[in-house]
Computed example of a mutant assay.
Amino acid sequence: MRLLHTSDWHVGRSLHGTDLLAEQEAVLSGLADVVRAERVDVVLVAGDVYDRAVPSADATGVLDRVLSRLRAAGATVVLTPGNHDSARRLGFASGLLAVSGVHVRASTPALDEPVLLVDEHGEVAVYGLPFLEPEVARHQLGVDVGRSHQAVLSAAMERVRSDLYFRPGARSVVLAHAFVGGGEPSDSERDIAVGGVDLVGPSVFDGVDYVALGHLHRPQTLTPRLRYSGSPMAYSFGEAGQQKSVWLVDLDAGGLADVRAVGLPVPRELSVLTGELGELLADPSYTAVEDHFVSGRLTDGVRPADPMRRLQARFPHCVHLEWAGTGSVTDGLSYTDRMRGRSDLEVAGEFVRHVRGVGASPSEQELLGRALTVLDRDEAAR
């Protein structure tokens, strides 16, 4: 049996306010081509199907079309909710969907009830573990365990192994959405918990043939049978240049036989450009990235006027901008501390310097003084 391990689709996510639905649909629909070309039997989606608990109507439309294309390509689909999803919403009509070959495993009490698939070697039991919020999951599982992901996932896996005990000869696959020790995070994941209680030891998943992990957006291998597929697209400029991929997982009569990566297309690349505004607008070496999503990091000594509009004239998909010029550096004090004891005119002048990188000119100081005088007079007249 051949499985395609994916995760962290985040349908509906934006990039600095820019809608990504068209790019997401292009990449995710392309998975149907992989299913056909590689003769994939099962597509696994290990959590964070949507980017938010209440997805938009457009996001649900994208997911509907993508799942339909995967089914038309011949693959069974098994998916689980992650920490971005609402398990109850994602699990709506799961019974009806299962009839069509799309299995949504969103119920914590039923996590030890596998999707049973059959090939020439016998049964394959696929267990979908929804994201387990410790305080909620320990009550749903009916166990008195600690308030950590390690504790509730350990309890969940005990139930999985107990079910497997009564399925001699069955090969096993687990989908889980967690931060497993040894994984390398990116800067686009939302923290599962605070302070490290989210970390889970790899040994929690002992006893199964393959573990399809979700949550970390970088594809990586913790052990041959324990892997993250990563997100199908880059969702932050910190991921610029990452090769996104999915795992093709082969099971034979003895269990895990082979795993290999399949690279995914990039509908629009991400680039971070650093330099003075004039350089970025004129340098011909940037011609190749004019159609990329661009983050501009300006090093001008003085904050330029209207920099985003000017950058977008050359880079229409520039979605992020920061000023890193020398004038943007402060002495480490808060703005309140730096303004304490100063006159209104001094505060206004300092604001000009803070925003623009250079202080107000004498003529500008005069205009500020006149404006403040008028304000004071109006205030006194009230």
Rank of each mutant, 00 (worst) to 15 (best):
A98K: 09
D283M: 05
V319W: 07
P316K: 05
E350N: 02
A324H: 13
V66N: 10
L281V: 08
V126R: 03
E366V: 01
A360V: 00
G325F: 04
E120Y: 00
S148C: 09
R161L: 00
A261E: 15
G359I: 13
F166C: 01
R65T: 12
R227D: 02
D51Q: 10
A151S: 05
Q365V: 02
S334Q: 10
Q140T: 03
A257I: 14
M1I: 10
P168N: 00
A212M: 05
D48Y: 05
G101V: 13
P232N: 03
F293W: 15
L3G: 02
Q365N: 13
A87S: 07
A32M: 06
G169E: 08
P55Y: 04
S245G: 02
G359E: 01
T108D: 08
D191H: 04
S86P: 05
F205E: 02
H103N: 09
R167K: 07
L264Q: 02
D51H: 11
S148Y: 03
R89H: 01
L153Q: 10
R370V: 03
H177S: 08
G325R: 00
S172W: 06
H292V: 11
Q312W: 00
S361P: 01
D337G: 07
S328W: 08
D144M: 11
P185A: 14
S68T: 15
T80P: 04
L21Y: 11
P284R: 01
G82D: 13
L116A: 01
A380D: 15
S236F: 06
S343F: 04
L222P: 09
